[in-house]
Amino acid sequence: AEDTGVRVELNEEDDGKKSSIALKLWVEDAKKLKGKYKDTGAIEFTFDLVNDIPEVVAQEMVESGFFLDSDVKVVGKSIRDRVSLIKWRRERTVSPTG
């Protein structure tokens, strides 16, 4: 995936069953963000793979004061890339119990 300067990682083991999963997001390269990044640290949150939309979560982060409005796209894309990867992995994982 394209390097957005924002890292999103799993914050728990993915058991492949839960629709809600814990993620952790932090800024690796503040230069990739348009606004002046507030150096808050890593943001841990829960993402629902079925019902949540990455761009909506990014907007909530902006409204919570973590990022500026101009960075909502890059944050949303970072979350979307990670979520796509999680879904892709799940599709490839065959349940041992069938």
Binding site: E9, G41, I43, E44, S64
Partner: peptide
Amino acid sequence: SATAQVVHSAGRRFIVSPVPEARLKEQ
């Protein structure tokens, strides 16, 4: 620990924790 919690009006909870040093890009 240096964690803080922000709850958005939509109900989502954001927990702020220190970025793991080892996971930061080398400058």
